[in-house]
Design a protein around this nucleic acid. Sequence first.
DNA 1: TTGATAGGCAAGTCGTCACTTGCCTATGCT
DNA 2: AGCATAGGCAAGTGACGACTTGCCTATCAA
Lengths: 101, 101
Amino acid sequence: MLGGVADELFKALADPTRRTILDELADRSGQTLFEICGRLSMRHQLGISRQAVSQHLAVLEAAGLVETRREGRYKYHDLNTAPLRQITERWPEPEPEESTP
Amino acid sequence: MLGGVADELFKALADPTRRTILDELADRSGQTLFEICGRLSMRHQLGISRQAVSQHLAVLEAAGLVETRREGRYKYHDLNTAPLRQITERWPEPEPEESTP
DNA sequence: TTGATAGGCAAGTCGTCACTTGCCTATGCT
DNA sequence: AGCATAGGCAAGTGACGACTTGCCTATCAA
């Protein structure tokens, strides 16, 4: 139970920079590492090294939130929101109180 | 944007023990600190101190995931799943590709 | 009032994680 | 071939977070 697959998902979401990366991929899918670096520094004033972003992407990929496809020397990154559904499924909303008639 | 309110939510979910606490509160709402301690050690083999659980509950409460009500010397803890909706709202599912006819 | 129960506060330790630095591989252009 | 671009690997550092330990407050029962 503990140490399961969900661990990587929640760990990936824990970092604010990684969440911003997800935002950027939601805005424009299929970006390369350098494009993501550029948008993080331009639109979010994040002075961050390329390697740091690369490590973040690896964590996001391990969580299943980002999928990659290689073409030549480019590696494109796509957002996958499917794993997020585990969260709301794990703690479902309480059904409204029925006024037992 | 970074350092916003969402920070506390994702930070709270990042720890596996805290997620187990949410599981226990989903199973039975309105538990006290000592009840939660007991269930963590009995049902999850978690050898953890009372203070550690108390600190976890504080983090969960700061994230809005747990609400508390005091009665006499007892403090009851209730689960609130509402903040979880921020997550799926922030990264919505892509609408299916329309076959443009 | 005394003792027991339920919980809170604060400092200290230890491990994990984000980030950097430096070097290396691979693809494409000219 | 030669150079630039896109990306990967690995070790080192610094900070934050989880947990413990020790002591303190508050409520209730005898």
